[in-house]
Design a protein around this nucleic acid. Sequence first.
DNA 1: AAACGCAACTGGTCAATACCAGTTGCGGGG
DNA 2: CCCCGCAACTGGTATTGACCAGTTGCGTTT
Lengths: 251, 251
Amino acid sequence: MVDRTSGLPAYRQVADDLRARIASGELAPGDRLPSERQMVDTYGVSRPTVRDAVNLLRTEGLVIAEHGRGVFVRRATSVMRLARLSRSAREAGRGAFLGDAAAAGFTPSVEVQVTFEPADARMAELLGVAVGTELCVRDRVMDADGVTVQLAVSRFPRSVTKGTAMEQPDSGPGGTHSRLEEGGHQLDRFTEAVGARMPTPHESSVLQLSPGVPVLTVTRVAFTVDGRAVEVNDIVMSADRFSLAYEIPAT
Amino acid sequence: MVDRTSGLPAYRQVADDLRARIASGELAPGDRLPSERQMVDTYGVSRPTVRDAVNLLRTEGLVIAEHGRGVFVRRATSVMRLARLSRSAREAGRGAFLGDAAAAGFTPSVEVQVTFEPADARMAELLGVAVGTELCVRDRVMDADGVTVQLAVSRFPRSVTKGTAMEQPDSGPGGTHSRLEEGGHQLDRFTEAVGARMPTPHESSVLQLSPGVPVLTVTRVAFTVDGRAVEVNDIVMSADRFSLAYEIPAT
DNA sequence: AAACGCAACTGGTCAATACCAGTTGCGGGG
DNA sequence: CCCCGCAACTGGTATTGACCAGTTGCGTTT
């Protein structure tokens, strides 16, 4: 029963109570919450108010609503830990994603679409080329165990991809990085900028995200030994299925 | 005006329209959206429906509501790019955060609280010690230009901190890492695990997060040259104010 | 001219109600 | 016995109506 004199909004009181019951373990992961109509009785508030409370917990990522079934306490999701870019995997004949995912014990697959477009301001900046320079765009949808878990869009100046398998959906054994090195563009280092944000509606549906789950974004730029940027890879992945592992020397 | 025959829920149609007007620039960052009551007229729906639409955009982080003023298109927030752990900064007499933030052009300050507690299962695992081992806990609240931007909790086995300035709020010049090396614990490498999630209510208020903004989480473990983990640092920061920059050799 | 205070806005909260749309289980018919 | 279909649940969408609570600006008062 909510306290109408406390000053705290009723829906917050309901949300706080549910949150506390989840934290205490009374409502364990996978458990179903009382139905909205039951809570209307137990808390003495209207259904919209109950829904406001449940929606709060949903945006906090604590619970998941399933139409026709109920609202459930979210299960702790096992995260894939992605180690960043081991050359060993590339030399074993796999691209970066395939190597990472296989190492994490998943069976991955990738769907690729290749297009061409002129460089916008951001790409020009990152690749160090003029705006309008023609780029080869590899748009990739990556699945693990059948579900889409990662979106990645790589862009290369077409000067480094022309006449190579990089302009084909199947870029060949070892992926695009192997093709780059074969073309004399010896890779020296990558920079990664990691961020997080809420997904766009499109990302939300493709990645099958529950409401309240953010995405991790990685912008990876590949540089050759002569300091030239040859690839910008924009990666988006579900934050509740991934964490990124980095190792940094103290030197 | 919404289309009642399209099958798409009315509140989604309103949200889609607003989202499109924001994307097109018709509603620019900082602009005020029409008031809820105005939208009731223009779209021909009830106010709760309008609110559902606006709430969707809020959880997407596109707009911010201000009580009594209106709903505003979110301004592009300038993100601080944090380079991970340069020794040069540490040797210049600053801790990692102070070095990073100063490099990004902010005037940082840190508030520290030191406590002691036994290791739980996770800490025991990460630090390679027995559950219950006494730890020194440094709980830090980091401000930049006056606003709290980062929370960090470092835990050390007390065996490495006993009798050092690490058990004082002011750990001295160069921060705890300098104290560790003075104590013969020469740092060799760090591992960082980066994730993202929605903030807890506490984090949300301390970090002054707008609704719909996730937090980036970093768990950094420091290892000495003899392979021993001596520090676990749990860092939480606002994802709309930070991105993390890593550099990875291709070797 | 300055300061106060009161509209007239804004979003925030809440109620009562209705119907739509998935899911599930049980009972009756094949 | 199996299967189909219908209740009886679940959450999803939407309405109308009301009042509370910040903010702002414009008048009036001092």
